[in-house]
Design a protein around this nucleic acid. Sequence first.
DNA 1: ATTTATTGTCTAAATAGTAGACAATAAATA
DNA 2: TATTTATTGTCTACTATTTAGACAATAAAT
Lengths: 244, 244
Amino acid sequence: MYSHSEQDYIPQLSIDCVIFGYQETQLKVLVPKLDFRGDFWALPAGFILQDEDIDLAARRILEVRTGIKDIYLDQFRVFGGTGRSNRPFLERMMSLNEGKLGSKMLNRKEFEWVTRRFVSIGYYALVDINKVVPQKNDMDESIDWYPIKDLPPMIMDHHEIVEKALETLRLNLDQKLIAFNLLPETFTMRELQELYESIFDKPFARNNFQKKILNLNVLERLEKKFTGAANKAPYLYRFLNAKG
Amino acid sequence: MYSHSEQDYIPQLSIDCVIFGYQETQLKVLVPKLDFRGDFWALPAGFILQDEDIDLAARRILEVRTGIKDIYLDQFRVFGGTGRSNRPFLERMMSLNEGKLGSKMLNRKEFEWVTRRFVSIGYYALVDINKVVPQKNDMDESIDWYPIKDLPPMIMDHHEIVEKALETLRLNLDQKLIAFNLLPETFTMRELQELYESIFDKPFARNNFQKKILNLNVLERLEKKFTGAANKAPYLYRFLNAKG
DNA sequence: ATTTATTGTCTAAATAGTAGACAATAAATA
DNA sequence: TATTTATTGTCTACTATTTAGACAATAAAT
């Protein structure tokens, strides 16, 4: 499972990632499903190497799952309840998968290490969903984008982690001008508005939304976009402060 | 130093506390000075027991230092750079204090434990400075309130931690209505304004500040305060949502 | 009685946010 | 080709909020 042994990591400390994407007017989260009987879903997670900055650890974990190096990333909260252990979950999983676990089973030492109580640092990431090729790891059966309004049941407190990530995203969206990380290079005003609506789960007035966004002076207007629809063609825009 | 042995704690994970107080129109931070030659200051800190919620660990650490149980408290950021070890600091301290360390010296095992790289969770606290009786621990020479604009040199990245705490405090102040935690039970409008000015390090217009605060509808107006000054006496106010 | 410094509040001006309206346009329809 | 339809871009009026200026009320000193 790891290229490093468990001694190489800081014990009892993990990173959980909420990877946001946007597709078909829906805000989505990238969630792997574990390759065991019992339907277990868990946020992409990992540990911190002894000589690794926590932000870089988060980047490493995110790159493995998305293939993207230069990813927008924000640390938002630490989850440190006393009940945060993988033990109940792993034991239930083992009881449901007796015959199958051999190849993937952890040895006793690893099992002890990974089933202790963990404190987890929550990071959320914003990606252009079209640039991501989701990567399973050895433990996964699959990895997919789920609408945030229709997430699968996840282990431990992972629903709470997503909830808190979304809350922080909403607070930061206007302040830090980060919505554009969820869109392709160019987009129409309507697409940007629909993205806002999916994040805040409420409608915005079209005229005033456009005014507000244009007054930020962070968009470059490009040529018109051919839609083929029976109406006026919208302009395309590009975010100016794009690092790239 | 501890009533628990080092195995009772989560290794390599600590809590650093920025305890804010307010006195004589200055925002202050409670900082202990270590009882060793060399003038070492360090934020109040501690570790997390294996069966202890991180928020409760922070409360425990704060109660030890302030004597206050019901303290306002907010987790604001994790500090996880690779350079975060006490080793350089402890070794320098040891070289400066050869004769003196015996009684307080950690044994070898404890020394190894405490000098590894640490990831630290930052909490800030807001207290009524008049209710606090600062408590030294075994390692401290003194513990005092320092104006945030005139902090002593602190070890490691503790200045950065204070900086980030202040930044978060500013962002949260209006949103969460927490300034009142820094004042006594009753206060005048001018006192509240001067508190805001010390936190944001900028002046506020008196008329508009008063209007804004009163429009929040969270203050109860009490009797007038006798000042003895040659002018109109100000009203006293009390914060309504006070949990007490 | 007058002066002084500060407090509480009012009003006007400037700014920002909200709601309604309409011309411009690209393609479908008649 | 003229008309209809759906959507886009923008304008203006209206409302709410923020900022700036003004002044009466007051407690004690002069």
